[in-house]
């Protein structure tokens, strides 16, 4: 059985147990990503019959064009060079299977192939903290997650911790009205840690299940702002032992190599536990997921696939990989 066959079977198995609609959404959302990636791969295979240095160099480019980190690509291609030598592969078509297998390996990580569920606090308040640089979609992601959690029957409260950017509090307020979730807010310019503190107290008083904490966007090289974030984190830790239960770094799918620097610095400051990959519905490849997975070991938990309330999907590595390589798989099947 070919590798793709295996992947497909695995995918349809998990599919039966989970939501039937997810793969369709992925397929739709990743349409641009997928076609451009597999187009390029096929194009590459068509132009190079023989495996040589030029072929590898161009393969590097195809991968880098998807924003997969340069280091990750170099490692990967080096491995492929070795593999080609070891198995004495001369024909590029033969290498195709190996390439895809290696890519999936990185996407899926070592052990966990199942979607990573958000951690919940079974006895008491669960707190999720959202962090990230400016303009990645933190507030929007919070609004979408609030909707999702509410659909699941949870009582949700949001804390408007972005007291800096003009209109940020109002933005969260609008999401609160849309989703019917209460927003705890202070005036613009007040101390974000104080807002979060009040948020925790309010959420506890109302017997809420989940508190979603917004923070202001900050570039990771601004020491003062990162210290401020650290303070917010400390306040949460102090008020609810074991919290925050998730620190979600929101990353813009169009971001390039800088996303790695973001992941690294935010992890040092706020102990990031998962990633929300936003704006994946454009032509951006989201290849950075691969790099972050490979170099940082931080799992992706959600992807943003549109502007509607429902457009936040749990990240399912199998579905993601399936979506990314679906066309390649079809070719494979036809060939067999």
């Amino acid at each position: 059985m070919s590798f793709f066959q295996k992947l497909k079977n695995k995918f349809s198995n998990t599919n039966n147990e989970t939501d039937q609609k997810t793969p369709e959404k992925y397929k739709e959302g990743l349409k641009k990503t997928r076609t451009s990636f597999s187009d390029r791969m096929n194009n590459l295979m068509a132009r190079y019959r023989k495996v040589d240095e030029d072929f590898f160099e161009e393969l590097e480019e195809v991968l880098i064009a998807s924003d997969v980190g340069v280091n990750t690509v170099m490692d990967l291609v080096d491995e492929l060079r070795m593999e080609a030598k070891r198995q004495n592969i001369k024909d590029t078509i033969q290498l195709k299977d190996v390439i895809s297998e290696k890519l999936v390996e990185i996407y899926q990580g070592d052990e966990d192939e199942q979607p990573q569920k958000l951690k919940m606090n079974d006895d008491g308040l669960t707190i999720y903290l959202f962090v990230g640089v400016n303009g990645v979609g933190k507030t929007t992601s919070i609004g979408k997650l609030a909707y999702k959690l509410k659909q699941e029957g949870k009582k949700v409260v949001m804390a408007a911790g972005d007291t800096f950017r003009a209109g940020a509090i109002e933005q969260l307020q609008v999401w609160g009205e849309r989703t019917g979730v209460e927003v705890i807010r202070h005036n613009a310019g007040s101390d974000p840690a104080a807002v979060i503190y009040d948020g925790i107290k309010a959420a506890q008083a109302r017997g809420a299940d989940v508190l979603l904490c917004d923070t202001a966007g900050r570039l990771q090289n601004k020491v003062n702002l990162m210290n401020e974030l650290n303070k917010v984190h400390r306040v949460i830790e102090r008020e609810v032992p074991g919290a925050p239960h998730e620190v979600l770094l929101v990353l813009d799918a169009t971001t390039g190599q800088n996303a790695l620097a973001q992941a690294k610095t935010f992890q040092e400051t706020a102990n990031v536990s998962g990633i929300v990959l936003s704006k994946l519905d454009g032509t951006a490849k989201g290849g950075i997921v691969l790099a972050i997975r490979n170099e940082m070991k931080i799992p992706v938990k959600f992807v943003g696939l549109g502007e509607q309330m429902e457009d936040l999907q749990e990240f399912d590595p199998n579905a993601f990989v399936y979506g990314l390589f679906a066309d390649l798989m079809q070719d494979e099947e036809q060939a067999e």
Partner: peptide, 12 residues
């Protein structure tokens, strides 16, 4: 344009 944009900057 966000200065952090990756390869997709060209398409945009």
């Amino acid at each position: 344009v966000d200065a952090m944009t990756g390869q997709d900057a060209v398409n945009v």
